[in-house]
Amino acid sequence: MIERFLAMLAAERGAAANTLAAYRRDLEAAREVLGDPGQADVAALEMLGEAWSALAPSSLARRCSALRQFYGFLQDEGIRSDDPSPALPKVRARRPLPRLLSRAEVERFLNAAETDAKGDDPAAVRLLTLLELLYGSGLRATELVSLPLAAVPRDAPFLHVTGKGGQQRMVPVSTRARQALSRWLVVRGGLGEGRSTSRLLFPSSGKTGHLTRVRLFQLLRDLAVRADIDPQRVSPHVLRHAFATHLLEGGADLRVLQTLLGHADIATTQIYTHVDSARLVELVNARHPLAGNPFA
Rank of each mutant, 00 (worst) to 15 (best):
L34Q: 07
M1R: 12
L283T: 15
P231M: 01
D222H: 12
T162D: 00
P86H: 08
F217P: 00
L88W: 03
Q218V: 11
L130G: 06
L27E: 04
Q179H: 13
L216R: 07
P236D: 06
R62I: 08
G163W: 05
A17W: 00
D253W: 07
G190Q: 13
R25S: 10
V106Q: 00
V238E: 02
A29I: 02
A40F: 05
A40Y: 04
D155V: 14
E132V: 11
L60G: 10
R279P: 00
P236C: 05
L181M: 12
G209W: 11
A54D: 15
Q69L: 15
A224H: 08
K164W: 05
A30R: 02
L139N: 08
V256A: 15
A15M: 09
L290S: 13
L67G: 03
Y23G: 06
T268E: 03
A123M: 06
M1T: 13
E132K: 09
S205M: 13
A51Y: 10
A177E: 09
S53M: 09
L48W: 11
S58K: 13
D82C: 07
S137C: 10
H246Y: 05
V214M: 14
L149A: 03
P57E: 05
G163D: 07
S198W: 11
L48I: 05
H160K: 13
Q218E: 15
R80T: 07
R103P: 00
R94Q: 13
F5W: 07
S102F: 03
I229Y: 03
R233L: 13
A11M: 13
E282S: 14
N285D: 15
L97R: 01
L216M: 06
S102E: 13
P157L: 05
A242M: 03
L181S: 09
L60E: 04
G35L: 09
A242G: 14
L128Q: 14
L88P: 03
P84K: 08
D82S: 12
G49Q: 08
L67S: 06
A30S: 11
K164N: 05
L191T: 11
T162N: 01
E132T: 11
R213Q: 12
E3M: 03
T19M: 08
Q218C: 04
G194Q: 11
G251R: 08
D36E: 15
L191W: 03
L27F: 08
R63N: 02
D83Y: 04
M47A: 15
E50Y: 12
H246A: 06
E249R: 09
R233I: 02
A17I: 10
R80N: 03
R178F: 09
F202I: 10
A61P: 07
S65L: 11
A112K: 04
G119D: 14
A123C: 00
D265R: 12
R240A: 05
A54P: 00
T175E: 15
D222P: 00
P153H: 14
E105N: 01
L254E: 01
P294G: 07
R287T: 15
D82V: 09
G78H: 09
E105S: 01
S85K: 07
P122A: 08
T245F: 02
P231K: 01
A29S: 10
G165A: 09
L128H: 04
S53R: 15
A17M: 01
E50I: 06
H246K: 02
S198M: 09
E249G: 13
M1D: 12
L220Q: 04
P231S: 04
N18A: 14
G292Q: 15
P84A: 12
